[in-house]
Design a protein around this nucleic acid. Sequence first.
DNA 1: CCCATAGTTTGCGATAGCGCAAAACGGGCC
DNA 2: GGCCCGTTTTGCGCTATCGCAAACTATGGG
Lengths: 236, 236
Amino acid sequence: MAKVDTSLVAHLPLFAGFKAEDLEEILREARSARYPKNSAIFEQGADAHAFFLLLHGHVRAAKTTPTGEQIVVRYVAPGETFGIAMAIGLAQYPATATAVDDSVVLIWPTAAWPRLVERFPSLASSTLLTVGSRLQESHTRILEMSTQQVEQRVAHALLRLAKQSGKKLDHGIEIDFPISRQDIAQMTGTTLHTVSRILSGWESQGLVESGRQRIILRDPHKIVILAERNPDSGPA
Amino acid sequence: MAKVDTSLVAHLPLFAGFKAEDLEEILREARSARYPKNSAIFEQGADAHAFFLLLHGHVRAAKTTPTGEQIVVRYVAPGETFGIAMAIGLAQYPATATAVDDSVVLIWPTAAWPRLVERFPSLASSTLLTVGSRLQESHTRILEMSTQQVEQRVAHALLRLAKQSGKKLDHGIEIDFPISRQDIAQMTGTTLHTVSRILSGWESQGLVESGRQRIILRDPHKIVILAERNPDSGPA
DNA sequence: CCCATAGTTTGCGATAGCGCAAAACGGGCC
DNA sequence: GGCCCGTTTTGCGCTATCGCAAACTATGGG
């Protein structure tokens, strides 16, 4: 059980207001682990034996239907928790988590949660805040899927990814982990073909520059406009 | 400030494990109010000055886009909380709540929440459970919108409503509050026209019986089959 | 009892986006 | 340096579903 440096996590909202010694007590229950690119962290349906905090890398959470279709629930960025199934009353993971890049995580055994919450009640409140904001995002996504067309949804998805995990370049923003057309399709409820067509279109207008699992927003502002444009307002 | 009878709420999961006197202490901070059918309880964007527990009736939570389109986030059944924006870190309500039937609610001022949580930490944990299960439902909804066609989504929506608020009849299940084609469209990401066509079709097959803001599932089992059927499996 | 209103049904194009298929491409591995 | 595999691109027909328009019908109020 490796010692974890508190300085790595002290600034996270999850631990806001914790004293150094409390933090240490919490971290003592965790171990850290490294997951190489494309390795599975846990599988949908498996017993939720642990919950996680991402330190480095990027993790994709995806949900699969009985018939094998997938959607991407979200991408986890460093500093975020994931796999907190048990905190919300689930005995099994509702989704599959995969490292999309070499990643480092902290792992707490599920059994530690009730103990920690009892000792540090504010953990429950902060977790409530994070879960609440994920609920918000889900509602936004439902709203978009109900009212917008595919191009706008893709625009929104890319902007969110850029905000969450964008690397600022001299001219533009690059999404900082490998992501395929298929992934974007699964985030926006469409097919990889349609995503490919949309990106090709944008590329020819100089809005983006993209290739194999790689996307750079060259003109974020114009993409914002695209994302917000009312379908039947301006001409093509 | 009317006295509220603890027996009305003691059995709710939210208050599981509370002693009678604790419960009384909590209820002392609440007042109750009655909202007539079709009246607004709070508006999207308004300051979240209170949170609510529905005692009788039914409440619709809906979200509106800047361009005026709406989706139904959920229907609230008796015993459920709603308007808990501030518990998840929001200063304004993210949706509009409307009583779809004459309704009675308990109302706590937002200011009471931090105090209550400090005094009764398990409130945060139970709220975490409810918010978590709503997150689950949202993900399910996103999955359905991404992978299923409209008819299946409508089937699922009606089955969920029937389970949550269905009144068992001699032969079938009636959804126990007024709900229009438009409402169902806004729950499933389609138009009232398409919903109407689908219900007409089902009606002629004897699966449902419906009219003005009224739906009875006459053959729930066949609807389950419809909901689960793989789009390109059986013949029409 | 009749009218006004909100909800529902239905017809008829129009079309965004899917689904299939095939080709081009790019990277990494041996 | 060449090959293999996963990813991306693109063409083309198809259809589920939308959007508009118009007729129809309960329901509650006066």
